[in-house]
Design a protein around this nucleic acid. Structure first.
Lengths: 147, 147
DNA sequence: TTTGCTGCAAATAGTTTGCAGAGAC
DNA sequence: GTCTCTGCAAACTATTTGCAGCAAA
């Protein structure tokens, strides 16, 4: 079973356990969230579902994302300039690398963050609960295209 | 001359050099941005200016922030849930620690970020231009209040 | 059969824009 | 005197909400 299939099952079972109804629209949205290829926006999800569900409403997508967020199974990345993006494949905080030209979002591997949380907690006297780290730049593809 | 007075002068001179007119409203907004105590929101700035400028419009604040952003002298921190916050005192990327209860924003001192940028650049083949790092937690004051 | 979900439309919040008059230079 | 800026109102975008009918359990 693939990584995203596992995520799909986890989310669906968690919803069942909390007595939420399982509708075809809901399943389709969870399907996309559990893959989260490219970290889709609400509009991306809507575009992907319009064919299979011609009556699909944006409100349904918003409501279902809210539901999956409420059980902690999707990470919301808010960007004031280019809208919110979602990651239901890795719903825990992790760094992102964003191409400012093509809007691609990539997950790098970084170790030092947990250490940094402790450093910050000591220095500021905060109880650190979560974090967000984004790097913005230009990806290899876009650099190649433009020289 | 204090730190924020220096910032005020830098921003005003940069605007003069670019042939922007210096109006009282503009100066008052730059004044607040150059201090950026607590990293104010647009509404915070509006509230502070209503007394001195009863006709002050939100549009004027938005336009002036946009102007100061365009010359790179204010850092915008977008939060989808609680609006945008601004830092004209330290307009370059730096980590923030945000209390999720009282919305206080603090600047911690951290070293390891430039090293991390290089690590990310090597691994992802991106040219990294900027970054953003936020830690979310509960500050000492709020912890004390609630036990 | 009950309860929650969907789809539509309207409402809302945050931000931007058009325009006429005022003010900086 | 010229040209940008301000203030008001309207427009706009992203998201949320109310409600009636529908579908999952």
């Amino acid at each position: 079973m693939s990584d995203s299939q596992k995520r799909f099952e986890i989310i669906v079972q968690k919803l069942r356990k909390n007595h939420h109804k399982i509708t075809p629209q809901r399943l389709a949205i969870i399907q996309i969230l559990s893959e989260s290829l490219g970290h889709p926006s609400v509009e991306d999800i809507y575009a992907q579902l319009k064919n299979d569900f011609p009556t699909m409403s944006l409100a349904t997508i918003y409501r279902n994302i809210l539901l999956v967020k409420s059980i902690g199974e999707v990470l919301e990345l808010g960007f004031p300039d280019w809208g919110n993006r979602y990651d239901g494949n890795k719903p825990y905080p992790h760094p992102h690398v964003i191409c400012i030209k093509c809007k691609k979002i990539v997950d790098p591997d970084l170790e030092s963050l947990i250490h940094m949380e402790k450093e910050v907690a000591n220095e500021t006297n905060f109880k650190i609960l979560t974090h967000r780290l984004d790097f913005f730049g230009i990806c290899g593809d876009c650099t190649a295209k433009q020289g």
